[in-house]
Simulated scan of single mutants.
Amino acid sequence: MSKVKYYYDPDTLSYRKIEPKKTKRFRNIALFILGSFLFGLLSLVLLLNTNLINTPRELSLQREVKNYELQFELLNKKMEQIEDVLANVEDRDNNIYRLYFEANPIPDEQRRAGFGGVNRYKALEGFNNSEMVIATTKRMDIIKKQLAIQSKSLDEITKLAEEKEKLLAAIPAIQPVNNEDLTRMASGYGWRTDPFTKARKKHWGMDFTAPKGTPIYASGDGTVTRADNNSSGYGKHIRIDHGYGYLSLYAHMSQYNVKKGQKVKRGDLIGFVGNTGRSQGPHLHYEVWKDNERINPINFYYGSLTPEEFKNMLKYANQENQSLD
């Protein structure tokens, strides 16, 4: 029940009832409605910007965002594991593989370098989780770059390994005449007495005494560059170019089993012991060349002799005696 208001009338000396005007009443009603609307609108805006009231769509989006954040955490953990494995591979690459094959290690600055120039992550800016997304993306890009560098490095190591394998097969590393076929190891590399002039003369190879017709084997992979009797003193002889600066020579042979231009493998039968050229008896004169310099062949028999056999050969090779050519 609305209150009735009165006012004192001094003319009649009595209280008179106040009759509200209709315009004022309508104005009050309008102000009340407007105030209620504004209050309701403000309350709605406040509620929509808080977590007190969420629409089903907003709840669904919030769940998606939390799921994405969880996925990013899992992704970062996986990247940590990948980085650990990659760091281990890089360490072995630098300190084992590249060291073994005499290749320069790849510096960490090159492996872990970032990306300069244009901002690659501008499209990821301006979101609530931009920092996390950008940091994860940068991390992934660096891992991808490290993997690319490591892949190229392993390709290089593979090529070096193949080349190393060829080098090891090419080095003249076995004795050209089997031990059981030898009569004796007549003379080694160094100063020896010439059998014809009796003067001291540098003997540039090793002499293996064996019966005529004893098999002679290639001491390493290579290509036959000569198989002829056109070099003074050597008689029938063969020269094999092994590559990498190595060459082996087999002299005083009785006959050949290969011809010029033929490719041979270590252990292939290339000819037979003889007594041709400047020779005092059936034997094989064997030389090893490196970069056009004759070197001591005894340093290359690791592929066919036992330690005891090598010790005995070293003993006989170092004796000051008379050579057979």
Score class of each variant (00 low, 15 high):
D9K: 06
Y15W: 13
R16A: 10
E19L: 11
P20M: 04
K21S: 14
K22N: 13
T23N: 14
R27D: 15
A30N: 11
L31K: 14
L34S: 13
S36Y: 10
F37L: 15
L42F: 01
L42V: 05
V45D: 04
L47W: 01
L48V: 14
N49M: 10
P56K: 14
Q62C: 07
V65A: 15
L75F: 13
Q81F: 01
V85F: 03
D93Q: 08
D93H: 04
N95Y: 06
E102Y: 11
N104R: 14
P105V: 01
D108I: 00
D108G: 00
Q110N: 04
R111C: 00
R112Y: 03
R112C: 00
G114V: 04
G117F: 01
G117R: 02
V118P: 04
V118Q: 06
N119F: 04
Y121S: 13
K122S: 15
L124S: 05
L124H: 07
M132H: 10
M140K: 10
K144P: 03
K145P: 03
I149Q: 01
I149L: 00
K152P: 02
K152M: 08
I157P: 02
L160V: 09
A161T: 11
K166V: 07
I171V: 15
I171E: 00
A173E: 08
P176M: 04
L182W: 07
L182F: 06
R184E: 13
A186H: 08
Y189W: 09
G190L: 06
D194A: 08
P195L: 01
F196N: 05
K198Y: 13
R200W: 02
H203G: 02
W204P: 07
W204F: 12
F208P: 07
T209W: 13
K212V: 15
K212T: 15
Y217V: 04
D228V: 11
D228S: 14
S231I: 11
G233W: 06
I238N: 03
Y244G: 14
G245P: 07
Y246R: 12
S254Q: 07
Q255H: 06
Q262T: 10
V264E: 03
I270V: 00
N275L: 06
T276E: 02
G277R: 05
R278M: 04
S279H: 00
Q280D: 12
P282C: 01
L284R: 05
Y286A: 08
W289V: 05
E293Y: 13
R294L: 07
I295R: 04
P297E: 06
N299P: 05
L305R: 02
E308L: 08
E309P: 08
M313V: 08
A317I: 03
N318D: 08
Q319D: 05
E320Y: 15
E320W: 12
D325A: 12
D325N: 12
